[in-house]
Design a protein around this nucleic acid. Structure first.
Length: 265
DNA sequence: ATGCCTGCGGTTCGCAGA
């Protein structure tokens, strides 16, 4: 089963690009981040016409996540469990997590996440990022206890190591590269999750994001911030991983590219 | 040192992204 994660930076602005990629890559399951619309504005029919079922956790203008699946989906959850302790979500809940059980002959649970950016460092936004990562770890522990195959995939908004950036110095003051962000990412992995990129022995420089600005793409000033973190039961079924770098060269590209993991059926 | 680019809302500039 091929499962893709892709931060599309507005599903409506990106629709022709996204459909073209889906028709070529044909993943069975897709997690989108930053759809930037409410569920009623999501172009559901365009994806249903390609044979996908659709589950959405939308938000006006910002954030928003969605799952597509050619198999039925059940046990759908919108929002990350737990309460935000920082008060940021008192201003309105942010739609950053959707999860479903993919009812294939050998099922896989997929959690699709858009982790908070956290800039600028030292503000409530950064505290919100770290608190969100704690909530994610707590939820991941709950899922691990079920002993199911799952992937927690999405835009983690963390540059885990200097090798995950072409120019690490440029990120020194950025929330994505702070020691606290990196420590929280390591702590999440070390509860017993497997980075598909590592399982697939992806070489350094396998970036997933290039800024629109300053010719970042043309200069390959990228970072690796989009991941599939697999449960042990999913890692046992790991067949391969592909980062679709070519998507950054499409017409009207997202600033992120898809990452596709292949699990044994 | 700063902005570079893109999308959204709702009008054309401020905010957010990373």
């Amino acid at each position: 089963m091929r499962i893709a994660t892709w931060n599309v930076n507005s599903v409506n602005a990106r629709l022709p690009t996204v459909l073209a990629w889906l028709e070529a890559a044909r993943p069975e399951v897709v997690g989108f981040q930053e759809i930037k619309c409410l569920a009623e504005k999501f172009p559901r029919e365009a994806f249903e016409d390609l044979g996908y079922n659709v589950e959405i956790h939308g938000q006006k203008s910002y954030n928003g996540v969605a799952l597509l699946s050619k198999y039925p989906m059940s046990d759908v959850h919108r929002g990350l469990p737990g309460v935000d302790p920082t008060g940021i979500e008192a201003e309105g809940e942010q739609s950053r997590y959707v999860e479903a059980l993919i009812e294939a002959p050998r099922p896989v649970r997929v959690g699709c996440l858009y982790l908070p950016n956290g800039n600028p460092v030292g503000t409530a936004k950064f505290a919100y990022k770290l608190a969100w990562m704690e909530r994610l770890q707590a939820h991941a522990r709950t899922l691990l206890a079920q002993e199911e195959a799952f992937t927690l995939c999405g835009d983690y908004n963390v540059i885990p190591t200097p090798e995950d950036a072409r120019n690490p110095a440029a990120w020194a003051n950025d929330a994505l590269f702070q020691p606290e962000s990196q420590a929280a990412f390591r702590a999440l992995r070390h509860i017993g999750l497997y980075d598909a990129g590592e399982l697939g022995k992806q070489p350094p420089g396998t970036y997933t994001f290039w800024d629109y600005q300053a010719g970042a793409w043309q200069r390959d000033h990228g970072i690796r911030i989009d991941f599939h973190l697999l449960s042990p039961q999913a890692a046992d079924r790991f067949r391969g991983v592909e980062t679709h770098r070519e998507a950054r060269d499409m017409e009207k590209p997202s600033d992120h590219v898809p990452v596709v993991v292949d699990l044994e059926d």
